[in-house]
Amino acid sequence: MSDLTALPDEELLARLQRGDLEVLGLLFDRYSDTLRRFCARLQVPEEELDDLLQTLFLELPNTARRFDTSRSAKPWLFGVTTMLVRRNRRSAARALRRMARWRLDPPAPAEPVNPERETAARELASRAQAALAAMSHRKREAFVLVALEGLSGEEAATLLDIPVATVWTRLHHARRELRSALQEEVP
Protein backbone atom coordinates (compact mmCIF):
# COMPACT_ATOMS: atom_id res chain seq x y z
CA MET A 1 0.00 0.00 0.00
CA SER A 2 2.83 2.33 0.82
CA ASP A 3 3.95 2.03 -2.78
CA LEU A 4 0.51 2.92 -4.03
CA THR A 5 0.16 6.04 -1.93
CA ALA A 6 3.22 7.47 -3.57
CA LEU A 7 1.79 7.01 -7.06
CA PRO A 8 0.47 10.03 -8.92
CA ASP A 9 -3.25 10.25 -9.67
CA GLU A 10 -2.73 9.45 -13.34
CA GLU A 11 -0.99 6.19 -12.50
CA LEU A 12 -3.79 5.27 -10.10
CA LEU A 13 -6.31 5.79 -12.88
CA ALA A 14 -4.11 3.75 -15.24
CA ARG A 15 -4.14 0.91 -12.70
CA LEU A 16 -7.87 1.24 -12.40
CA GLN A 17 -8.08 0.88 -16.17
CA ARG A 18 -6.25 -2.42 -15.83
CA GLY A 19 -8.82 -3.60 -13.28
CA ASP A 20 -6.88 -2.95 -10.09
CA LEU A 21 -9.71 -2.03 -7.74
CA GLU A 22 -7.32 -1.61 -4.84
CA VAL A 23 -6.58 1.95 -5.94
CA LEU A 24 -10.22 2.97 -5.77
CA GLY A 25 -10.08 3.70 -2.03
CA LEU A 26 -6.92 5.67 -2.54
CA LEU A 27 -8.51 7.87 -5.16
CA PHE A 28 -11.46 8.31 -2.83
CA ASP A 29 -9.17 9.48 -0.04
CA ARG A 30 -7.54 11.99 -2.33
CA TYR A 31 -10.58 13.38 -4.05
CA SER A 32 -13.72 12.73 -2.05
CA ASP A 33 -13.68 16.09 -0.24
CA THR A 34 -12.80 18.07 -3.35
CA LEU A 35 -15.40 16.39 -5.50
CA ARG A 36 -18.03 16.57 -2.78
CA ARG A 37 -17.48 20.30 -2.46
CA PHE A 38 -17.52 20.56 -6.25
CA CYS A 39 -20.87 18.77 -6.37
CA ALA A 40 -22.23 21.07 -3.69
CA ARG A 41 -21.10 24.09 -5.70
CA LEU A 42 -22.93 22.64 -8.68
CA GLN A 43 -26.00 22.77 -6.41
CA VAL A 44 -26.42 19.07 -5.79
CA PRO A 45 -28.69 18.92 -2.72
CA GLU A 46 -26.80 18.04 0.41
CA GLU A 47 -28.83 14.91 1.10
CA GLU A 48 -27.83 13.53 -2.29
CA LEU A 49 -24.14 14.26 -2.04
CA ASP A 50 -23.06 10.99 -0.44
CA ASP A 51 -25.06 8.83 -2.81
CA LEU A 52 -23.74 10.75 -5.77
CA LEU A 53 -20.17 10.44 -4.56
CA GLN A 54 -20.56 6.72 -3.99
CA THR A 55 -22.00 6.27 -7.46
CA LEU A 56 -19.16 8.31 -8.89
CA PHE A 57 -16.48 6.11 -7.35
CA LEU A 58 -18.29 2.84 -8.05
CA GLU A 59 -18.58 3.79 -11.69
CA LEU A 60 -14.99 4.95 -11.84
CA PRO A 61 -13.53 1.52 -12.80
CA ASN A 62 -15.72 1.62 -15.88
CA THR A 63 -15.35 5.28 -16.74
CA ALA A 64 -11.59 5.13 -16.18
CA ARG A 65 -11.32 3.15 -19.42
CA ARG A 66 -11.87 6.43 -21.24
CA PHE A 67 -9.13 8.24 -19.32
CA ASP A 68 -6.17 9.37 -21.41
CA THR A 69 -3.19 8.60 -19.16
CA SER A 70 -1.14 11.31 -20.85
CA ARG A 71 -3.49 13.93 -19.41
CA SER A 72 -3.98 15.30 -15.94
CA ALA A 73 -6.27 13.34 -13.64
CA LYS A 74 -7.88 16.17 -11.74
CA PRO A 75 -9.67 17.93 -14.63
CA TRP A 76 -10.78 14.54 -15.91
CA LEU A 77 -12.29 13.67 -12.54
CA PHE A 78 -14.06 17.03 -12.51
CA GLY A 79 -15.38 16.22 -15.96
CA VAL A 80 -16.67 12.81 -14.93
CA THR A 81 -18.28 14.39 -11.90
CA THR A 82 -19.90 17.11 -14.00
CA MET A 83 -21.43 14.51 -16.29
CA LEU A 84 -22.71 12.56 -13.34
CA VAL A 85 -24.23 15.68 -11.81
CA ARG A 86 -25.95 16.41 -15.11
CA ARG A 87 -27.27 12.87 -15.24
CA ASN A 88 -28.41 13.15 -11.67
CA ARG A 89 -30.18 16.40 -12.49
CA ARG A 90 -32.05 14.68 -15.28
CA SER A 91 -32.76 11.58 -13.36
CA ALA A 92 -36.42 10.79 -13.30
CA ALA A 93 -35.96 8.84 -10.08
CA ARG A 94 -34.59 11.89 -8.38
CA ALA A 95 -37.49 13.96 -9.65
CA LEU A 96 -39.91 11.37 -8.28
CA ARG A 97 -38.12 11.35 -4.94
CA ARG A 98 -38.34 15.08 -4.81
CA MET A 99 -42.02 15.05 -5.69
CA ALA A 100 -42.65 12.46 -3.00
CA ARG A 101 -40.80 14.57 -0.52
CA TRP A 102 -42.87 17.59 -1.45
CA ARG A 103 -46.02 15.60 -1.07
CA LEU A 104 -45.24 13.95 2.25
CA ASP A 105 -43.20 16.54 4.04
CA PRO A 106 -44.22 19.98 5.17
CA PRO A 107 -42.45 22.79 3.39
CA ALA A 108 -38.83 23.06 4.40
CA PRO A 109 -38.47 25.53 7.19
CA ALA A 110 -36.54 28.66 6.53
CA GLU A 111 -32.92 28.47 7.48
CA PRO A 112 -32.69 29.18 11.20
CA VAL A 113 -31.44 32.58 11.92
CA ASN A 114 -27.88 32.25 12.95
CA PRO A 115 -26.44 35.27 14.68
CA GLU A 116 -23.13 34.65 13.04
CA ARG A 117 -24.74 35.04 9.66
CA GLU A 118 -25.70 38.48 10.57
CA THR A 119 -22.24 39.58 9.79
CA ALA A 120 -21.76 41.14 6.41
CA ALA A 121 -19.39 38.45 5.23
CA ARG A 122 -21.81 35.67 6.02
CA GLU A 123 -24.62 37.55 4.45
CA LEU A 124 -22.58 38.07 1.31
CA ALA A 125 -21.62 34.40 1.18
CA SER A 126 -25.22 33.38 1.59
CA ARG A 127 -26.40 35.75 -1.13
CA ALA A 128 -23.57 34.68 -3.39
CA GLN A 129 -24.56 31.05 -2.94
CA ALA A 130 -28.14 31.93 -3.74
CA ALA A 131 -27.05 33.78 -6.86
CA LEU A 132 -24.93 30.82 -7.89
CA ALA A 133 -27.88 28.51 -7.36
CA ALA A 134 -30.10 30.75 -9.48
CA MET A 135 -27.67 30.61 -12.37
CA SER A 136 -28.23 28.26 -15.30
CA HIS A 137 -26.32 25.04 -14.81
CA ARG A 138 -24.19 25.59 -17.92
CA LYS A 139 -22.94 28.95 -16.69
CA ARG A 140 -22.55 27.57 -13.20
CA GLU A 141 -20.44 24.66 -14.44
CA ALA A 142 -18.07 26.98 -16.27
CA PHE A 143 -17.87 29.40 -13.36
CA VAL A 144 -17.31 26.74 -10.69
CA LEU A 145 -14.73 24.88 -12.72
CA VAL A 146 -12.66 27.90 -13.68
CA ALA A 147 -13.27 30.53 -11.01
CA LEU A 148 -13.75 28.32 -7.97
CA GLU A 149 -11.91 25.08 -8.74
CA GLY A 150 -9.09 26.78 -10.60
CA LEU A 151 -9.14 24.80 -13.84
CA SER A 152 -7.86 26.54 -16.94
CA GLY A 153 -10.30 27.56 -19.64
CA GLU A 154 -8.86 24.92 -21.93
CA GLU A 155 -9.29 22.18 -19.34
CA ALA A 156 -12.88 23.25 -18.69
CA ALA A 157 -13.55 23.35 -22.41
CA THR A 158 -12.19 19.84 -22.84
CA LEU A 159 -14.14 18.28 -20.04
CA LEU A 160 -17.35 20.14 -20.91
CA ASP A 161 -16.80 19.32 -24.59
CA ILE A 162 -17.29 22.93 -25.69
CA PRO A 163 -15.02 25.50 -27.35
CA VAL A 164 -12.80 27.60 -25.08
CA ALA A 165 -14.50 30.75 -26.32
CA THR A 166 -17.79 29.35 -25.05
CA VAL A 167 -16.24 28.84 -21.62
CA TRP A 168 -15.18 32.48 -21.56
CA THR A 169 -18.61 33.62 -22.69
CA ARG A 170 -20.36 31.60 -20.00
CA LEU A 171 -17.90 32.87 -17.44
CA HIS A 172 -18.52 36.46 -18.48
CA HIS A 173 -22.29 36.03 -18.14
CA ALA A 174 -21.93 34.22 -14.83
CA ARG A 175 -19.85 37.02 -13.39
CA ARG A 176 -22.29 39.62 -14.65
CA GLU A 177 -25.20 37.77 -13.08
CA LEU A 178 -23.41 37.50 -9.76
CA ARG A 179 -22.47 41.15 -9.87
CA SER A 180 -26.02 42.12 -10.68
CA ALA A 181 -27.46 39.95 -7.91
CA LEU A 182 -25.05 41.27 -5.31
CA GLN A 183 -24.82 44.90 -6.31
CA GLU A 184 -26.34 45.97 -3.00
CA GLU A 185 -23.83 44.04 -0.93
CA VAL A 186 -20.86 44.67 -3.19
CA PRO A 187 -21.11 48.16 -4.62
Binding site: G25, S32, R37, Q54, F57, L124, P187
Partner: peptide
Amino acid sequence: GSDSAILQALRASPPPVWKPEGREAVRAAL
Protein backbone atom coordinates in the same frame (compact mmCIF):
# COMPACT_ATOMS: atom_id res chain seq x y z
CA GLY B 1 -12.85 44.43 -6.36
CA SER B 2 -16.57 43.58 -6.36
CA ASP B 3 -15.97 40.50 -8.48
CA SER B 4 -13.10 39.49 -6.27
CA ALA B 5 -15.20 39.94 -3.12
CA ILE B 6 -17.99 37.78 -4.55
CA LEU B 7 -15.51 35.10 -5.47
CA GLN B 8 -13.95 35.15 -2.02
CA ALA B 9 -17.38 34.97 -0.43
CA LEU B 10 -18.19 31.91 -2.50
CA ARG B 11 -14.87 30.30 -1.67
CA ALA B 12 -15.37 31.11 1.97
CA SER B 13 -18.64 29.24 2.02
CA PRO B 14 -18.06 26.24 4.24
CA PRO B 15 -17.76 22.94 2.40
CA PRO B 16 -20.64 20.55 2.78
CA VAL B 17 -20.35 18.65 6.00
CA TRP B 18 -20.16 14.87 5.92
CA LYS B 19 -22.77 13.05 7.89
CA PRO B 20 -21.38 11.28 10.93
CA GLU B 21 -19.35 8.37 9.62
CA GLY B 22 -20.69 9.20 6.18
CA ARG B 23 -17.30 9.39 4.63
CA GLU B 24 -16.21 6.05 6.05
CA ALA B 25 -19.51 4.49 5.01
CA VAL B 26 -19.10 5.62 1.44
CA ARG B 27 -15.50 4.46 1.33
CA ALA B 28 -16.37 1.10 2.85
CA ALA B 29 -18.92 0.58 0.10
CA LEU B 30 -16.25 0.73 -2.60
